[in-house]
């Protein structure tokens, strides 16, 4: 009887390993580069200061929104799980289109269409929302932070004046590791 129980445990373990091996390729489609980006999104909360008026209450959630194409999958949720920014618990919200868009503190725009991006940015105008995107001319067309790849490394482009206009205070440490566009 005991031997059987041991066997059952071993079988469970084997099925687990098998499952993970089978599942990995499915997640890897958004992996590595996007995982780094997801961590970067979280790290922005450490190096950027939001005005107190951006929150309804001292313990109101810090909302990270993802609009359009979501390249992170669950990884973003895993990254921010249980984390807090200045006593504000981190929350992820996903919006399918502009109509679903709500007030958020950081918005990753998964769009390549300049027109749609412009519309989203116009909607967000004068709000304390940090806008992030992979779009090529994002920092030159009203966006704040653009991810780009250089020598296999994810790098940042920051439009400082737009961020300042949104009353976001970006740490000089962050500015030092980024390309600044005015």
């Amino acid at each position: 009887m005991q031997n059987f129980a041991v066997l059952r445990k071993a079988a469970a373990c084997c099925s687990c390993i098998l499952f993970s091996v089978v599942c990995l390729p499915a997640q890897r489609t958004t992996s590595r580069e996007n995982q780094v980006k997801a961590v970067f999104l979280f790290n922005f909360t450490q190096f950027i200061e939001w005005p107190a008026s951006a929150f309804n209450s001292p313990d109101a959630p810090f909302i990270i929104g993802v609009i359009g194409n979501d390249p992170f999958g669950n990884y973003l949720d895993e990254t921010v799980a249980g984390e807090k920014v200045m006593n504000h618990p981190l929350v992820i919200q996903r919006y399918k289109d502009l109509g679903e868009l709500q007030t958020c503190h950081m918005l990753f725009i998964g769009q390549e269409d300049p027109q749609k991006i412009k519309t989203i940015l116009d909607v967000l105008n004068r709000r304390h929302t940090l806008t992030v995107s992979d779009y090529k001319n994002f920092a030159y067309s009203g966006g704040m932070i653009r991810f780009y790849t250089q020598e296999n490394k994810t790098r940042l482009q920051i439009n400082l004046s737009i961020a300042k206009a949104a009353e976001l205070n970006i740490s000089s440490k962050l500015l030092r590791v980024a390309e600044i566009i005015d």
Partner: peptide, 14 residues
């Protein structure tokens, strides 16, 4: 303290 951003944004040059 100065190296936090380099670490956070994986910038070895910095």
């Amino acid at each position: 303290s100065n190296s936090t951003a380099a670490l956070a944004f994986d910038n070895r040059e910095d």
